[in-house]
Design a protein around this nucleic acid. Sequence first.
DNA 1: CGAAGACTTGAAATAGATCAAGCGTTGTGG
DNA 2: CCACAACGCTTGATCTATTTCAAGTCTTCG
Lengths: 204, 204
Amino acid sequence: MHILRSLPLFSTLEDSELKEIENVLMSYSYDKGQIIFSSYDGANGIYILTKGKVKLYKSFAGKEQTIRIFSPVSMMGEAGALKGGNFPANAVALDKVQVLFLPKEKLTEVIRKNPDIAMKMIGILSERLFHLVGLVENLSLKDAVSRVYDYIVHKADQNGKVEFKTTIVAMELGLTAETVSRAISQLKKRGKVKKEGKIVQLLY
Amino acid sequence: MHILRSLPLFSTLEDSELKEIENVLMSYSYDKGQIIFSSYDGANGIYILTKGKVKLYKSFAGKEQTIRIFSPVSMMGEAGALKGGNFPANAVALDKVQVLFLPKEKLTEVIRKNPDIAMKMIGILSERLFHLVGLVENLSLKDAVSRVYDYIVHKADQNGKVEFKTTIVAMELGLTAETVSRAISQLKKRGKVKKEGKIVQLLY
DNA sequence: CGAAGACTTGAAATAGATCAAGCGTTGTGG
DNA sequence: CCACAACGCTTGATCTATTTCAAGTCTTCG
């Protein structure tokens, strides 16, 4: 089964059409730290992440805010390609990354031909919107301790454990490492979590 | 010409289909301060704002963040209706407001039947995404004075004039009225803008 | 083992919010 | 048509959360 099938957008596409898409796909790889696309680039297609992690972020005046972190298999850059113009943000490889590139002409052709795909794309964009509204809520309404706590709850496994690297979490939450460190101290003091090495454990 | 025609989404729709939509529209009105929908409501349709202004916002722990302010004629709530589930945020009337409500079944039917409409809806959602990414950038990376200045540049007409109501701008930018007022003083002092009554004038 | 990087903790700095007071504008009811 | 109440705007004085700066400790791994 082709990897495109793992993408919700294309999961229901007919084999013949999938084949057509495969024919126009380009494959690229990037090393850690390399820029995959930036908000200064014209968006002439979408990227499908097949290996590695990618950080989507905005930067301005030396500061940086992470929008989201992508893991395989995900679609990236669709809003830019579908609106026309540039990408809304920058994407950087967090490790060795492999992507497939699909030109927007082919993408729009497929969408136009398949109402199901169109509806799925609409669903995906709506989901992205929800995610961003959540991010706005976090950034502007919640304080550092709540954000760190929410992060832990959100990422914890069944046993309430998370691997926790202060610096990384700080980036994801748009805080400094110092603030995250202090937040964890607070949460420990309040009996909300326990920390052993790099594992944070939720307490109930 | 029916008011639906002023909506980009429906501007190219055929008369017969427009008629069909009109038949299922419900009309509602709200007074200043009334909630039109909230993030606790199941989203079973979209709202078309035909009169008045509406604030879309998130709230948490007594604080509030405006996502955007709608003026006629705009579509509201589409991400909720198209994703399924609840609305992503709350909408409140800022003055006397009139809306049309279109059930999501009819909306999706129209989208499925018309690839043009589907592509337009995709474009609209992508635009919303850009707007939200911009909001995130503003909230986390820019200081109050830049945000107010950007707002003016963005909204200014050909002559560099904007109607400027401190309270409204404060809401849109997620700042307090006091901070916006101080920002304008700064910009005046720096010779960036002039203010006469409620009109702010960009200087070059 | 030792050096570089990651984490913690304290002290100072800062941006914006909040609190407070005064002033201008508007619009409504007498 | 006036009066005054309500609201919006401005400006000053605190207050507060988070960043920044600094120093010390811990980890890890070549």
